[in-house]
């Protein structure tokens, strides 16, 4: 019969190791989501989708901030996330107002059709 106690302890310690890997996994997820957001900004055509991709990138950065805050045991990362929230809210408000103005004046939301300032 296997030693259940030892098995339990080793399982528990392997989960402890997995717990230690949270920061690493969070940073990898953050990098992946940031890249997905970057691709979305270039690939999608709808202005609103492009703005949502920017929000996705901001979220990825927030995850990195929280992960580093956890790794170093300091609070500064979380305070920076707080500021990112504020800036994201302001950005969403102004950006969506611009989208509404664009829809009203151009009746089109395709990013390729906004080339007024293109040389």
């Amino acid at each position: 019969m296997p030693n259940l106690d030892a098995l339990y302890t080793s399982t528990l310690s392997s989960f402890q190791v997995a717990h230690d890997g949270f920061v690493q996994v969070a940073l990898a997820v953050s990098a992946f989501l940031f890249v997905v957001g970057t691709i979305g900004v270039f690939v999608r055509r709808n202005v609103i989708t492009v703005m949502m991709c920017i929000e996705l990138m901001l979220n990825a950065v927030n995850l990195a901030f929280v992960a580093f805050s956890r790794a170093h045991g300091t609070i500064d990362g979380q305070i920076l996330v707080f500021f990112v929230f504020t800036v994201a809210a302001a950005e969403a408000a102004v950006g969506l107002a611009i989208v509404i103005a664009l829809q009203r004046n151009r009746e089109d939301l395709d990013v390729d059709s906004f080339n007024l300032l293109k040389g």
Partner: peptide, 25 residues
């Protein structure tokens, strides 16, 4: 470019994060 960026940032993050301290606060 996104795929290249994804691979290199994952590698950098994975390697670099091993040197980070561990906290459970």
């Amino acid at each position: 470019l996104g795929i290249i960026l994804a691979i290199q940032s994952m590698v950098v993050v994975w390697k670099g994060a091993e040197t980070l301290p561990v906290n459970h606060k």
